[in-house]
Amino acid sequence: MSYHPLFNSAEAKSIKEWICEVGRRVYNKGFAAANDGNISYRIGPNEVLCSPTMICKGFMTPDDICMVDLDGKQLAGKKKRTSEILLHLTIMRQREDVKAVVHCHPPHATAFAVRREAIPQCILPEIEVFMGEVPLAPYETPGAQGFADTVSPFLKATNTIILANHGTVSFGATLEEAYWKTEILDAYCRILILTQQLGGVTYLNEQKSRELLDLKKRLGFDDPRFHNENCDLCSNTAFRDGYKEGEAPQVSAFAPPPVYPGYLQTPTYQTNGGVGGGGGQINMEALVQAITEQVLAALKQ
């Protein structure tokens, strides 16, 4: 393979070691059996380090890592680059802030992918603050650009995507960030499955759901619910414009989520100091509107 100066730089050496470390974590967690999964990191304007094809992520060494350009052409490395690199590159081309991408098959999250079940919201505080709604990209045969393009409608507003009948892809500014989003998602999906076995989930009420979004905003994290007036707090609506007709995932294995006014809309409760505290007087007009929406939603099921 042809020589590239970045490939043997001190920075590249450090990143190669990090890719191997994330590979070990993915493998040890059971997120990637045998040769499953792939990991990448953008090290230059047009240069990306990535795991090779047909290798167990738990046994990679820095010497195994490849380099490709943003079109997928291999620039350096003894082994052939991963066959699913186009997914990673599509994300990087559309999101300049993304440097690292992790794709794998965490079993609990992949169970949702196989069932094509929407992941319910307004249940666990950490998910509301650090993740938000997780979209589900439609199925396409892995490997080609058509598969990579399935994530494009959702890239603007999330760093974590479930791939229907396949697995997950998560991404961020660092390899650690990209990896821990996968870990958070799979842990949450496991909690959901276990809770369902106990009898079902309990949704947070409107006030507590809104308080978590207030906290998220104060911490400096973005969320589609901050910008879309018609985006419900809990009903998996942030990505509805990205789905083709009939493709939007539904919450069917769990109790239907409550219908609350969007974050930018008037809540159904009101405090002496306005919106967001505890107790206070009920906003009757908003309450009637919310009940009406719940009834209409129930009639459509």
Rank of each mutant, 00 (worst) to 15 (best):
I282S: 06
S252V: 13
G143A: 06
P153M: 01
E247Q: 15
I123F: 08
C189N: 04
H105E: 04
D36C: 05
V102F: 03
Y263L: 08
E17F: 01
G274F: 03
Q270Y: 12
Y179L: 15
H108Q: 14
H88P: 10
S40I: 03
L204N: 13
K208I: 10
A148F: 00
D186E: 06
G30N: 03
V169H: 10
T271M: 12
L70S: 09
G77Q: 02
F147S: 04
A113Q: 03
E211P: 09
E133I: 06
Q289K: 14
L296M: 14
L89H: 01
P261A: 00
T141P: 10
T61M: 14
Q145Y: 02
K208E: 13
I162G: 09
R210P: 15
C20P: 02
T202S: 15
T158W: 02
K181E: 01
Q196P: 09
I55N: 09
K16Y: 00
L233K: 12
K208G: 09
N159F: 15
P5M: 06
A12F: 00
Q145D: 08
I55D: 09
R225H: 07
K208T: 13
T174V: 12
G276R: 14
T82C: 02
D64Q: 00
G246W: 08
G132K: 11
Y188F: 14
A33F: 04
S235G: 13
K217A: 10
T141F: 13
F59I: 03
P135Y: 07
A164W: 00
Y27I: 03
L194D: 11
D149A: 06
N272Y: 14
K216L: 05
T168D: 09
P106I: 08
V48P: 04
F226N: 07
I39Y: 00
M67D: 05
V201H: 00
A10Q: 14
F112V: 07
T141A: 12
G77R: 05
E140G: 05
K156G: 06
L89Y: 04
A187Y: 07
D36P: 08
N38T: 06
P267D: 03
D186P: 02
N228P: 07
T160V: 07
